[in-house]
């Protein structure tokens, strides 16, 4: 099973990289989102996959449970990722609205120094 997951993670990363290198601002943000999914899944897989019960201690001492630490980590990452994506979306939307363009390259003028 891990092998299939590893391939899916690679796919998520590859798609994330490719989308982030695009000039369209929406694609860039979608790429960021894909990259986030990839990272979450990587942590989840690397900690060891188990079809076990949720980490609830009520199940008694004998039952095998999933590792709660990566879960806590990923839960945080998902919510933070949402915050970042939301902010990026608003910022990107605002910028593209003001500059009347969806091309990130069109924004370079504000970055350049005096020549």
């Amino acid at each position: 099973m891990e092998f299939g997951f590893a391939i899916a993670i690679g796919g998520l990363y590859a798609a994330g990289f490719y989308m982030m290198l695009r000039r369209n601002i929406v694609k860039f943000i979608l790429g960021l989102s894909l990259l986030g999914h990839g990272a979450n899944l990587l942590i989840f897989t690397a900690a060891g996959l188990t079809r076990a019960n949720a980490p609830l201690t009520a199940g008694g001492s004998g039952t095998v449970m999933a590792d709660p630490v990566p879960q806590a980590l990923i839960l945080t990452a998902i919510v933070i990722g949402f915050g970042v994506t939301a902010y990026m979306l608003v910022l990107g939307g605002r910028v593209s609205q003001l500059s009347q363009a969806d091309d990130v390259d069109a924004l370079r003028e504000s970055e350049r120094g005096a020549e």
């Binding site: 092998f3 590893a6 690679g10 590859a14 490719y18």
Partner: peptide
């Protein structure tokens, strides 16, 4: 070019996952 780069990066991450396991 970007696709090639991205796929290479994806392969690295796949291998990395297996190594990390």
């Amino acid at each position: 070019r970007d696709l090639l780069f991205a796929v290479t990066g994806g392969v690295v991450m796949t291998v990395l996952t297996l190594v990390a396991l």
